[in-house]
């Protein structure tokens, strides 16, 4: 009993530091989502563009972002770019790298979604004289959203975990808070707590994903 009490007391002691780290993790997570989803849509449209230079530029960007580790990109932005006098503060550097990286993945998902709407849907809209934008708004985009939801959900869950990479550039996120406490107090408890907090965050995301998918299950 005494042992349990001692552990509980220790948990209460380190919890503020862990929660503050969770705050940083959530900030990175939310801002990356808010910025990279719209950017991903723009990039997807660019990839399907019939204007060749734009298409090549966008493909090159996606190639680099998916072809190199996110960790490398983070280090490059924060430690590499200052060598050519482009200096980002830590937090902005992290967001910059995350948004560019995630937008590339989202773009590929949106492109696949757009391409999997049958050509006949566009043609039916055309003979009914719907404008391009009306067709997108009422017919195409609702279908794309349903198609991409499972893949977007996967990426969102990955993002929760990938946000832990920011600790290499010295940002105090959840994982770093746990790591510091473990090294200082020589105990596994902080790591277990960190794991539990990640699990809770991801369970929330998965729950939201299931709700959204259920909302779109009224048709097949």
């Amino acid at each position: 009993m005494q042992e349990v009490e001692r552990i509980m007391k220790y948990v209460m002691q380190i919890l503020p530091a862990l929660l503050s780290g969770t705050g940083m993790t959530l900030r990175i997570f939310c801002w990356t989502l808010v910025l990279s989803l719209p950017l991903g849509i723009l990039v997807a449209v660019g990839e399907l563009s019939k204007f060749n230079p734009l298409e090549w530029l966008v493909r090159f960007y996606v190639w680099i972002m998916r072809g190199t580790p996110l960790l490398l990109q983070l280090i490059f932005v924060f430690y590499g770019l200052p060598l050519i006098h482009i200096v980002f503060p830590r937090y902005q550097a992290a967001l910059f790298a995350f948004v560019l990286n995630y937008a590339a993945y989202f773009a590929e998902i949106f492109r696949g979604g757009l391409q999997s709407v049958p050509q006949g849907q566009f043609e039916a809209a055309k003979v009914l004289r719907l404008s391009h934008w009306q067709a997108l708004q009422h017919v195409i985009i609702p279908q794309v959203v349903k198609i991409v939801l499972p893949s977007i959900g996967n990426e969102v869950i990955n993002l929760v975990k990938d946000s832990s990479l920011v600790y290499v550039i010295g940002l105090g996120d959840l994982l770093r808070a746990g790591n510091v406490a473990m090294a200082r107090d020589v105990t596994m408890v902080p790591l277990l707590l960190v794991g539990l907090i990640y699990l809770a965050l991801i369970s929330l995301c998965a729950f939201a994903q299931r709700k959204l998918e259920a909302h779109f299950s009224y048709y097949k």
């Binding site: 006949g120 009914l128 004289r129 719907l130 404008s131 009306q134 009422h138 017919v139 609702p142 048709y219």
Partner: peptide, 22 residues
Amino acid sequence: QDFNLFPNLSVLQNVALAPELV
């Protein structure tokens, strides 16, 4: 040939969409 109905819209919405928008 395969009708190309809009799967995300109900039967009524399929028929009423273009008259309303266009």
